[in-house]
Design a binder for these strands. Structure first.
Lengths: 238, 238
DNA sequence: ACCTGAACACCGTTCAAGT
DNA sequence: ACCTGAACACCGTTCAAGT
């Protein structure tokens, strides 16, 4: 539950940054559907139309949210996971470096699973998104892919990362723990009621379909699968 | 523009099937946002609450739409692309067969790009979805993957197909041709205005990022990339 | 420059009532 | 069984007005 900031006495001046902060916090807590012009205004102790001075319309606000996530990912790629700017040239092979870029994006997205879908259609609309794209394209070109395949694989990479996060087994956005648990139990039970002769493999997999044993293993497999796919298609290979 | 059926004199009895038909046609023409209880009622010449007799709420209607697409895909897999039921056992290798399943799903989804996002969270909620999942799991197990990896790869396969369709370069849902063209030109122009020293690879790729030269080649690459990834991870391989 | 107030055209949904 | 009517609590957005 996000409280009215006015009631909490935290009222401050509005700004694009504060609105985006608030929207992201709200989406993290209650899902993207809760991110509403009117709700955001309420949380900031302001009239809904106040937001229209800062953003032309809701679409632009969503653009702003996406840009925030993208620039966090770009910063992580530029600085490395330790926050130290990387100065010396990266000596690793193209595939290790590409995997690093995807892993950085993944790290940011995992903190905001309700918002990941906003990103792919907007990646080319802001500078940090262009930076990320430029790096991915450069690495794929270095690997020997043509311009067209590189472009398509770069976009596909972003989509893969997004759908990994959005489809993490057991994911339910915008409901709190108890209800979430209840829903998962229900889903599990209904799957276990399936015909064992017709759906033996589904039945054997119920546990893994409905919850994520090890998140680390899950995301490693996702990245590995994408990278193996790219490597498998690399031109001039056995 | 979808016309009021009442005005067209085509008024018939309501049913779950007719409502789903109507919703799919509407989404195809104007995008998912246009699919509204009130709008559907209007198009059928009926009061909005009439729909609530057939579906408990909007969520169930969306479930119904997803199930329709899923069952079309399952039928295509079962019958083959020619519509003839496949009787003799499939002799192909597991990877060719898996690719065939994905290609069938792809074929159905490409006709309804506005609706693909509905499917992944609902694939386990209906019989045809369980059929598709069972096949994918069986083939992955046959390939030597463990239960957990098979489950995760099967779901990832579905997400890949969906995002291939949703992110097809040049895709803009729910607007007619002229406006679509205009938007693409604008987007292309803004990308071409990017710094050539900072974003050389982006600049070289503008054409491919903003429009899809050959749809066939695009989708082939997408399926190839996924299948290469799975093959690359197959246990007990060089 | 930054925000408010009233108003408009939309949503999904409930509940009682009609046939 | 199948649909209507009125009502409620929400949306995004415009436009004129305040400070």
């Amino acid at each position: 539950m996000v409280r009215k900031q006015a009631a909490a006495g935290v009222k401050e001046r509005l700004s694009r940054e504060r609105i985006v902060d608030c929207a992201i916090a709200l989406a993290d807590a209650e899902g993207l559907d809760a991110v509403t012009i009117r709700r955001l205004a309420q949380d900031q102790g302001v009239t809904p139309m106040a937001l229209y001075w800062h953003f032309k319309d809701k679409e632009r606000l969503l653009d702003g949210i996406a840009e925030r996530l993208i620039s966090q990912a770009a910063a992580l790629v530029a600085d490395g996971p330790d926050g130290q700017p990387i100065s010396q040239p990266d000596q690793r092979a193209w595939d290790e470096r590409l995997r690093g870029v995807l892993a950085a994006i993944l790290t940011v997205f995992r903190e905001h699973p309700a918002l990941t879908d906003l990103v792919p259609p907007r990646i080319l609309m802001c500078e940090p998104g262009l930076d990320l794209t430029e790096q991915a394209l450069g690495l794929l070109r270095e690997a020997g892919f043509g311009v067209e395949q590189s472009a398509q694989l770069a976009m596909h990479a972003l989509n893969s990362v997004v759908s990994l996060v959005a489809a993490e087994p057991g994911r339910v956005v915008g409901v709190d723990a108890e209800i979430r648990e209840q829903r998962l139990r229900t889903k599990k039970a209904s799957l276990q009621a399936v015909s064992p002769t017709r759906y033996p493999n589904v039945l054997a997999s119920v546990g893994h379909l409905v919850e994520c044993g090890s998140e680390t293993a899950y995301y490693e497999l996702g990245l590995d699968a994408f990278m193996a796919g790219v490597r498998g298609l690399q031109p001039g290979r056995p």
